[in-house]
């Protein structure tokens, strides 16, 4: 009879306090890990944007309607940060608010200026060499375009983002539009 009485007493004690705590902490850690894995993608990260004050503009242009084969644009960095180059689009209609013709395809190469990802780069594929107040003149073959009406440019930069060099479009904030008129 004695062993049976002892067995009953032991079973009434249940799980020890230490094991109880270990179980509780383990369950909490596992749940925390599961929740972290599920929610980590929702943690906001810094957006890929140019610093405020990145801007280029068209200082002047040379375009003769009697010989509309080429347009020369003098671009100036009137922002506060160096740029890598620019996206450039043209319109041959005064009705369209957005320029739809990609002029980077019409770039006449020279002087280290290259086409890259739909943009015109002024200093290679990893440097922001076009510093504030710098000027450059680029030429575009526009013989196939009739009635060039306007040109839009927006700056691009190389920026480090999560330890990678990324090509960044400075977007609407840096957009500059120039109306083109015949000069002869």
């Amino acid at each position: 009879m004695l062993p049976q009485t002892r067995k009953k007493r032991l079973s009434k004690r249940g799980v020890s306090v230490v094991i109880g705590y270990v179980l509780l902490v383990s369950v909490a850690v596992v749940l925390g890990g599961v929740m972290y894995a599920w929610m980590k993608s929702y943690v906001p990260k810094e957006s890929l944007d140019c610093p405020e004050g990145s801007a280029l503009s068209i200082k002047s242009y040379v375009y003769n309607c009697s010989d509309p084969s080429k347009i020369n644009l003098t671009i100036v960095n009137n922002g506060r940060f160096a740029a890598a180059g620019y996206f450039i689009h043209a319109s041959n209609s005064t009705d369209e608010a957005l320029a739809t013709i990609d002029l980077s395809e019409k770039l006449i190469p020279g002087g280290g200026v290259i086409k890259y990802g739909g943009a015109v780069l002024l200093g290679g594929t990893n440097n922001n060499t076009f510093k504030p107040n710098d000027e450059t003149t680029n030429s575009f073959d526009v013989i196939a375009l009739t009635g060039l009406a306007s040109i839009e440019i927006s700056a691009v930069r190389w920026q480090n983002y999560e330890n990678k060099l990324r090509f960044v479009n400075c977007g609407k904030e840096s957009m500059f539009k120039e109306t083109i008129n015949c000069q002869n």
Partner: peptide, 28 residues
Amino acid sequence: KNVELSCGDVEFLAEYSNGELIISNTGN
């Protein structure tokens, strides 16, 4: 990051004139 957050980074301009739809991707 979650694609829902990337949706907030999308920037584009759109215009419709004379039957032509024009879309410009001005973001990154």
